[in-house]
Design a protein around this nucleic acid. Sequence first.
DNA 1: CGTTTGATATGCGCTTATGCATGGATTGGC
DNA 2: GCCAATCCATGCATAAGCGCATATCAAACG
Lengths: 294, 294
Amino acid sequence: MDWRSVKFDWNRARAFLVTAEEGSLSAAARALGMAQPTLGRQVDALEAELGVILFERVGRGFVLTPSGLELLEHVRAMGQAATRVSLSATGQSQSIEGTVRIAASETHAAMLLPPIIAKLRLAEPGIHLEIVASAKPSDLLRHEADIAIRNFAPTEPDLIAKKIRDVPARLYATPAYLDRIGNPQLPYDLRQADFISIDGSGVFLKGLNALGLSLTERNFPILAENYLVMWELVKHGIGIGIQDGNIGDREPLVRRVLPDFNPFMFPIWLVAHREVNTSRRVRVVFDLLAADLA
Amino acid sequence: MDWRSVKFDWNRARAFLVTAEEGSLSAAARALGMAQPTLGRQVDALEAELGVILFERVGRGFVLTPSGLELLEHVRAMGQAATRVSLSATGQSQSIEGTVRIAASETHAAMLLPPIIAKLRLAEPGIHLEIVASAKPSDLLRHEADIAIRNFAPTEPDLIAKKIRDVPARLYATPAYLDRIGNPQLPYDLRQADFISIDGSGVFLKGLNALGLSLTERNFPILAENYLVMWELVKHGIGIGIQDGNIGDREPLVRRVLPDFNPFMFPIWLVAHREVNTSRRVRVVFDLLAADLA
DNA sequence: CGTTTGATATGCGCTTATGCATGGATTGGC
DNA sequence: GCCAATCCATGCATAAGCGCATATCAAACG
């Protein structure tokens, strides 16, 4: 075998990849946790090493040359293979010492995880934990997290998932707000109420209507895009929000809207990449999460 | 985009790849032109970084662990992508300064190339030339060379090829040897002669028989596996060998066997990878080779 | 038109990695 | 069973790469 064509510095290829994808040296440096001059010099060195001009230096940022674009295609393939290396490596690792990243929505991260994390820290002090709280579901295929807590079954093929339980979600508002809209008792009474939406796709609206309410977009004057913000808005008497019944019932500032109404059931899924879940420490965390969330 | 999974040191992955493929740190170090301790430390560091034991240290060499084998698969994909990067980079390079590697059989390298190389050096002093003389056809897809001189049309899809001309090949031997076997005039007279073979696959035998001779394996008591060695054996009167007519006729030590016999025509092809041939300096060399070989 | 922001280059001190030389260990051959 | 060859590990001097601080520049905004 001839290795001439793999002799070039692969880290420089990585620098080029991230710089091209992020659009600037500074952004790439932030993404990789390196200094911006370092990446600049690596890209320069790669250009000299390959004899190709990759970027056109134009004022504020860089612009890919046609040659750079051509090369980027192949460097992307390197990056995807590198991702698979990292993914598989995590799965192969049988060391209990290391990092496990858990992705969850802000609510779950803030409301459900803390006691479990505390228990996990005591049981396995060698495991370093990272909580990725994000409104959007993390991409486990790209290894943005090792384990994700989701409210829907995953559709991606390479993921394994375990349904933990169904959580009753209810509508909450402050007593003051409920007084203001006349203490509604029936779904029909909510036709003029203000709801605080948490995503713009309308699934919240459809879900509520499926339960017997008849709402329109005019009932959603506020979009929070963040669970915690939504909950704070509800606690400040701005409108009605949906929340896990176990959490909402413990919050003294709010009361159930329509107390006798059947709760809206949504599932909690624990999801992990098949490759990653073969890792011993990921498995430990996965199993403990599954047990304690139930 | 999340770059966590590409953060690890790619050069260490390269060290692992070459070490695993070559079978030892020392061999990998030779292949990459690095020191053996360097690769050893890089592999150690990768194991620590990924938390995976890649090799089992057993006496003289390393043995891949199952985890290492699993990871090697993905690292190989990185290496293949890296090869494509290098390949495409050579093609994108419009700089006349740089290296061009020419692969040819030993005969072509020794007999045909020297005057052309001399001319090329004068015309393009900025181009550094490397001659890869090998009995086996170089793998252009893996970029073992930029340009290859071959005696057959390439079958690989991504290669471009140009047929230069047909070369008359003839049989040669020393006058002393021809005297010894009775100065043969007809193909039939060669039924007892010794031929010097250059490959073990029998194509030489079949080719000669296709021209009217009736030889068996007993006529090939010597296998040289090297064109120059074969030619030296012929010049020392050991037997009959085949050679380019332009070369053989200029050699005072030998004479044609069956002077009036039609020569065996074999083609000369100039071959390059499609990607690589877009490089300016490769193109320059390619065109000059094509012109001067005709 | 000046200010601010966010970007790329450069100089410098220092950490890190590399190569060389060497020692220790194992395999294969005679 | 010894010898030679080959390979991996370690210590040390050196060189290369990195991060920090800073200068410089361009674009957007008021």
